[in-house]
């Protein structure tokens, strides 16, 4: 099942990727090629196979509840695109 241009636009929106209109046909074509490659998986019989998320199947280690971080706001905000009064600035958030 091939992706249409509108599917690609929807995916790009979900991923918040601005694409030029000019790029769209080429992108759609390439994505369809890749999906064609991926779809070869569908021929594999995986009935009764448990998905594997991590190769080692280890379990999560827990951290003691201790405060180990101190305030390094100035250092972290030195590399921020826009800050004011210690806040990160973004175009107005509308709720």
């Amino acid at each position: 099942m091939a992706l249409e241009r509108s599917d690609v636009e929807k995916i790009a929106h979900l991923a918040r990727l601005g694409l030029d209109d000019a790029e769209l046909p080429r992108t759609t074509e390439t994505l369809n090629d890749i999906l064609g490659l991926i779809d070869r998986m569908q021929a594999v019989d995986t009935h009764g196979i448990e998905p594997l998320a991590h190769p080692l199947e280890a379990t999560q280690r827990l951290r003691p509840d201790e405060v180990t971080e101190s305030n390094r706001r100035d250092a972290y905000q030195a590399i921020a695109p826009a800050v004011e009064n210690g806040l990160y600035l973004v175009p107005k958030v509308i709720e």
Binding site: L3, L31, L52
Partner: peptide, 24 residues
């Protein structure tokens, strides 16, 4: 884009879960 599509509603099982089974 490929990853976003593979995880999106309706495709997760056919792509991501399937791939993880093959991984096993």
């Amino acid at each position: 884009m490929v990853g976003t599509y593979a995880l999106s509603a309706g495709y997760y099982d056919a792509y991501y879960l399937k791939a993880q089974k093959i991984r096993r």
